[in-house]
Design a binder for these strands. Structure first.
Lengths: 214, 214
DNA sequence: TAGATTGTTAATCGATTAACAATC
DNA sequence: TAGATTGTTAATCGATTAACAATC
């Protein structure tokens, strides 16, 4: 059976659906129609129905969608019904913040290790996890079934580290380094380019000011 | 004169162009054709020419684009030719990391203040900037010509803080809180929903595994 | 059954790619 | 001038919205 490829536009909206459904669930709402949800989320009801139907019918004519069921189904689609071991590469400010932050743990993303090449950081504690020297990376990744590497290192060293990770079976890279990575097909990359995001904001400030000065 | 509205799809690509042109400039490359740039960036030459032409002709037939000129022009479009004062709201792990990190300073985003409601954090030093109590927010924003607020607080308190910021003339919000903000027209919002990003990664891991188990 | 609301097809809109005339 | 490459129009592709038959 041929699975149809879901567009990244749709995937990109799933976490937001998941968030809204979680809120509805917490509010004790049992069912919701695409119409009601569309008003709340400020998207069209049509888009909601199209999106959900990519994964098969979750609703029922004349009734709508069961909130809890839909929430769980979207969670499964997003792979939140199982755990993912992750390591952080780079124990600088951002790396440590992500290690400490880890609200992600609640969603099954388990913080297993953090690495740095700076000897003076090695041994420091980040939420119960000791910083390891980067030379231990390969062995650790292999032995601890690590699936995701979070890259919070300078762009100069990103390429080499990625090669080492790939060689040792990493499945996915959450990339905070400000560079485009080269990985073989089958290794997933998700970029978080913070400075790109800030530049977009800056563009929009600029544009608004220009539009309104005339 | 009617300015044509540029689509956010185009805006979203500008920072990446800017990055590649910066690299070319550093490599001492003087000129580049859309064809060469397209190979490097792995996009179509057609898209590159269309994108640039949204802002008027930056190139020259038979020659291509002058790297330094194009770099500077895109910088201007992105508003990087001037400075932007910003404050960080929330001196937790992420807020402090962003304050310390501030590679952004180089691009004209000046870190002016950081605020928290937790008395025990007040007075702490983040790269030379003392953490202030949130009650000082309004006055500080007004008196220091603050343009951008970086929101690194829990979603529960985001709404109220945003109202206070808007009341005091903030122009833009860089939102790391996991919630959709309501702002009046004219206030720019750029969301960085880290957990959404991580969920997308998780989806793609999942998908790949399923595709390959059969 | 009648009313409500989905699932799904068809229409529209916008973004990307291709093609080529203009021009350096 | 001839060759190269842009700027721009036209064609294609994909995503969003509208409409409505199916069905709970």
């Amino acid at each position: 059976m041929e699975e149809k490829e879901i567009s990244q536009a749709v995937i990109g909206r799933l976490p937001r659906y998941f968030r809204y459904l979680g809120e509805l669930k917490d509010e004790g709402v049992e069912r919701i129609s695409s119409q009601e949800l569309s008003e709340r989320m400020k998207v069209t009801a049509s888009q909601i129905r199209q999106d959900f139907n990519n994964f098969g019918g979750f609703g029922q004519q004349g009734y709508g969608y069961n909130v809890e069921y839909l929430y769980n189904e979207i969670g499964k689609i997003l792979g939140l019904d199982r755990t993912h071991n992750l390591v952080i590469i780079g124990a600088g400010n951002l790396g440590r913040a992500l290690g400490n932050y880890m609200n992600f743990e609640r969603r099954g993303f388990l913080f297993r290790g953090i690495f740095d090449c700076n000897e003076s950081l090695v041994g420091q504690d980040v939420r119960g996890v000791k910083v390891r020297h980067i030379r231990e990376l390969e062995q650790f990744v292999r032995e601890n079934d690590i699936e995701i590497a979070v890259l919070t290192i300078p762009k100069e060293s990103a390429g080499k580290i990625v090669d080492r990770l790939v060689q040792n079976g990493i499945r996915a890279i959450w990339n905070f380094a400000h560079v485009d990575l080269n990985v073989p097909e089958g290794v997933q990359v998700e970029n978080v380019h913070l400075s790109d995001s800030l530049m977009k904001l800056s563009y929009n400030i600029n544009r608004y000011m220009k539009e309104n000065e005339r």
